[in-house]
Each structure stands twice: as C-alpha cells, then as structure tokens.
Computed example of a mutant assay.
Amino acid sequence: MVKTDAFQSHLKSLAAASAFHPLYVFSGDEPLLMMESIDLLRSKARQLGYTEREVMLQERGFDWSALLNAGQTMSLFGDRRWIELRIPTGKPGRDGADALKQFSAQIASQSNADGPETIFCIVLPRLDMKTKSSAWFSSLDEAGMAVQIDSLDRGHLPSWIAGRLQKQGQSIQSGPAGQRALEFIAEQVEGNLIAAHQEIQKLGLLYPAGELSEEQVRSAILKVARYNVFELSEAMLAGDLPRVNRMLDGLKGEGEPLVLILWSITEELRLLSKLKMASDSGESVQQLLRANRVWGNKERLYPAALKRVQSSQLRQAVQIAAGLDRQSKGLQAAELPGDPWDGLRLVGNLLR
C-alpha cells in the first residue's frame, strides 16, 4: 500500500495507457482529498481513451457477480472503460470477501501490453490494521495499486490553505498579519477541508488575483448573510418561488456579491442537468446521488426536482445562467432583463 507522495509520482508517469494498473484501491476518511485523488487519476485515464464510466455501490443485496462479469465483458461501444466500486463501510462481508479474492485473481491473470481494457477503482473508508491484513484486501493490493489517503494534520492546515490560494493566483500578505489570516481561516473551518475549499473558492470569487490582506480575509470569511446563498439553491431545488424571491431581495439588500450567488446556482443547475439525463436513461436516482456526493437536505430535494422539472426547462435555465455570467462580466445579454437579479428570478421560476 502506497501513500500520497508515491501516488503523485505514479500520476506523473501516466503518459500512455500501458502505464496504468488495471486496479486502484483508495482508502481514507478525508472526502475532499479522496475525491481529488480519484478525479486526477480518472482525468488522466479519460485523456488516454477510458471514456466509458460505470459506478457500482455495494449495499445490502449487492450482486457481486456484477463486478466479476464487468472484468470479463467488453464495452458495447468499443471504448475503454473506467469502473468504480464504492464500499462505504469497508466491510464486504463473507460473500464479498470471496468475490474480491476471485476478482483479484481474475485481474492478475489478465495481461495487455497496450494497457488494461478496463481500469477498476475501488473506494474504501480508512481501514484498520486488521482489515489491511485480511486476505481480500491483500489480494487487491497485490493485483493493483492500493493508495492510502491520510488526513491532514491540523498544524499543516494553514500552509495547505496558502498552497490552495496560490493555485488560484492569490497569496496572503507576508509577515505576522498574513500568518494570522491563515490561522483564522483554519480556525473557522475547524479542520473540515471541504469547508476550507469552499472558503478558498469564495476568496477567488470575491477578490482578483494577487495578494490578500488580513482584513480582506476576515471580511469574506465572517460575512454570513441572513439569507444564506446555499439556502437559496435549496429553495430553488424545492421549487419554492415565493421563498426564492424573498431570499433574492434579502441577498441583494445585504450587498451579497452576485458572482458568488451565480456560481452556487450554476453548480446546482449543472448537477441537476447531469442527473436528469442519467435518470431519464434509466439509471437509479439513489445511486446517482451517492456517486455525485449529494447528501443532507439535497438528497431529498434532488429526486423531487428531477420529477418536477422538464429537460427543456433545465436547458433554458442553464442558458439564462450563462447569460447572467456574461452580464456579471460587463458583457451584453440582450435576451435577459437589465437587472441580473431579475434574471435569477427567471431561473427560480423555471425550477418551480
């Protein structure tokens, strides 16, 4: 089993399909780091022709033969495939353990000088030593590459935040004031990397590239509107137009940046469109929600929105959002109201 540094080195070596392992196993309890590592690998695979994707979720009653069959069947369209198996508990059970050992042997027996026809990715939570030494996990580790994604130590969080800001062209002022600003962000997110990631994105939306002062950081992080931007997206998903209009009035009155609101709404529209296309093709909505990491209130709101909103309405809402994006950058969007806030009301009306 390798750590993140070795996995990053492996990623850099993936210049051809022949460099891929047929199997990757990811284990960890930090969702953001897990998601980003898997996405980096999948992006490399997609660039080299692994364009067909399938996601399996192991839950009660899971048919393990589906995994075994997937390793033996060819793509219907002749494309190379990427198949994910998510085991949320990290405990496959007796039948699952036997199936995984059989699957590992199946993978090990296959050899292709041009690279595997199918790349398998198994996603597990953080594993204890007993599980790591189990026969089923050891067989997976031997058949491919097992990667352990460790959590970030709290003491390293400020430097991690600084590195993320640098990737989006921003930096914190040097000296004690800058260190205080980084520590302040770390304290506010309480070690939650997804929350830290969202705050970093917010800073990128609110301020241009360049150096950020401690005052700018504190102002952005502390600004919690009475009408929350993310609650607005939930109101839109619920189709509650009166609440959407009240929240837009409140957000506008409080001076909440339009670009931040538009980013949040656009992300929801993109995901809703993606899920709509997949569900209309007969895929399981619950599996789609889990595969796209939809949790909490939205796990209830998305299925209702998928039933309520037509594909044509979604396409129109996405077009309006694109026009609002042009408006926010000072460009013309003749088909939209002059006030972008009224354009957001049109989006809300289409989702009711």
Rank of each mutant, 00 (worst) to 15 (best):
I161R: 03
A181L: 08
D153P: 01
I261S: 14
E190S: 09
D240Y: 02
G96W: 10
N69A: 13
V189W: 08
L262S: 03
W263C: 09
S311R: 14
L205E: 04
K132N: 12
E52R: 06
E142D: 07
V294T: 11
N228P: 03
L23W: 04
K202D: 05
E199V: 12
L301K: 09
D325H: 10
V347M: 13
F184V: 10
G210Y: 05
K44T: 05
G239L: 09
A186M: 04
R80Y: 12
W64M: 05
I87H: 06
S18P: 11
L306V: 07
G323T: 00
S219T: 15
P257E: 10
V259Y: 00
E183C: 03
A113C: 07
P242Q: 07
N349D: 12
M145F: 05
I221C: 10
A143W: 02
P158Q: 01
L262N: 03
D98G: 11
K167N: 10
R126E: 11
S37Q: 13
G348K: 02
S138Y: 00
L182E: 13
L193G: 03
Q201K: 04
E52D: 14
K202F: 06
D114A: 15
L301R: 10
L237I: 07
L248W: 03
M56S: 01
S328Y: 01
I200T: 04
A70V: 02
L269P: 11
L331N: 02
G71S: 05
I185V: 12
Q168T: 07
G296K: 11
A334R: 02
P22C: 08
I107L: 08
C121H: 00
R94I: 09
L127G: 12
